[in-house]
Design a binder for these strands. Structure first.
Lengths: 144, 144
DNA sequence: TTAACTGCAAAACATTTGCACAACC
DNA sequence: GGTTGTGCAAATGTTTTGCAGTTAA
């Protein structure tokens, strides 16, 4: 997507949702969109203060949260702010309920047997290959 | 794995690595191994204090970190403690370098075209289906 | 004009660390 | 006995929130 299209879409989404297109929001969005480093809030802030010295870190957090709700931005990795653990060591995958946070293990042999695309061998040494599903679990679905 | 086997393996791994098999370590490991809830450190601690009222939360953190290094336990989700973001919205996957934390996007059409196993339809409504690769990126590999 | 947004400062969490005592080998 | 582990308390790091002044529509 080129810069203008990106900005146009951004402004459209904001308007559709009654959000003001502020200087801060525009710059935060553009900086993130032009990065391929998957930056943290702090890393983004560090980039941005160069151009906007008064920008505060809490605005970055607030803005990213807003964008996430609108689907303009995604949180990479998977889930919430606290680490979770498992003692299950054998190959398996996870379904994560975005609503209640429940995690369910599953196995998927035909996936495990797949080879990753040739062109990705250059990435480095791959130690693990896992699937993460996101969605709403049946329990949460039936609550509505 | 049954309880005794699990405990036996646990004690073996500890001994191999010169770790003392303390009451705390054993109970933390067993409680995690017997849970399928993928608990956080705090959640584990809450379960454990019922039986060991003096167990402190920092021992739980320390112990989980130790177990993780030994490969007895895994951190679910993916990466480090701070959230990271991306504005890329189209379907893609991630390679994560466990050493330097670099994230690399990639596409995998033949995976995207796969249907998830029938028996997992009961999980709920699935909104996203992604692959996460873990490993060491080529940059880090060449550093050694 | 007016409701929404931002910056500041402080709070709320989550996680880690230093130190002294306790427990294991 | 000596080293390793634990609990306490305090420090760090990350993210969130209340409030009052500022700004986009």
């Amino acid at each position: 997507m080129d810069k203008n299209k990106q900005t146009a879409r951004f402004e459209e989404v904001c308007r559709e949702n009654g959000l003001k297109v502020t200087h801060q929001r525009l710059e935060i969005y553009r900086t993130l969109a032009q990065s391929d480093a998957h930056p943290s809030a702090e890393a983004l802030h560090k980039l941005l203060v160069e151009k906007m010295p008064t920008l505060s870190i809490d605005t970055v957090y607030r803005t990213l949260a807003t964008f996430e709700e609108l689907g303009l931005v995604k949180r990479v990795g998977t889930m919430a702010s606290r680490a979770r653990f498992e003692a299950k060591i054998d190959q398996h995958h996870h379904f994560f309920c975005d609503q209640c946070g429940q995690l369910i293990d599953f196995t998927w042999n035909s996936f495990d047997a797949m080879y990753i695309p040739e062109e990705m061998k250059g990435l480095g040494k791959i130690l693990e290959k896992n699937v993460v599903l996101h969605g709403i679990c049946s329990k949460c679905l039936s609550k509505k």
